[in-house]
Design a binder for these strands. Structure first.
Length: 111
DNA sequence: GTGGTGACGACAC
DNA sequence: GGTGTCGCCACCA
């Protein structure tokens, strides 16, 4: 059968792609949704691997628990901040303003 | 097969 | 209250 390892990453990609426009989520929230809240590092690593995916993943909508654009350095072309601002999100000093207002929980996918 | 690393988070001191 | 350390799981050398 298929490797279970892909399931974890697959879940991360699925959740990230389901992030609605103008909303953002955190690594910890995704990790928690997957069942391992402490596996936030794995979520970040999944984003790194998402780079190799054929399917586009809005990784720019994923920030750390503080609402800081920690992974912006990994983005090519336009900055991560520009993309978020284009969605109506206000960012000052790499920090999302009203982070709680734009914070989207993966749990929203559940009924 | 082992060790080190990583776009983080929470806890201990 | 800031700093330091561990934990989590998967990938690379």
């Amino acid at each position: 059968m298929m490797s279970k390892s892909e399931n974890f990453f697959e879940q991360v990609y699925q959740v990230v792609e389901q992030i609605p426009y103008g909303k953002v989520t955190t690594y910890g929230a995704i990790a928690e949704f997957l069942g391992s809240k402490s596996a936030s590092r794995m979520v970040g690593w999944a984003m790194n691997n998402a780079h190799t995916l054929v399917k586009p993943v809005p990784a720019h909508r994923v920030v750390n628990r503080q609402g800081l654009l920690t992974g912006k350095m990994h983005f090519k072309g336009q900055s991560m901040q520009e993309r978020l601002e284009a969605e109506g999100i206000v960012i000052i000093d790499d920090q999302i303003q009203g982070f709680e207002s734009v914070f989207w929980h993966p749990n929203t996918l559940l009924p």
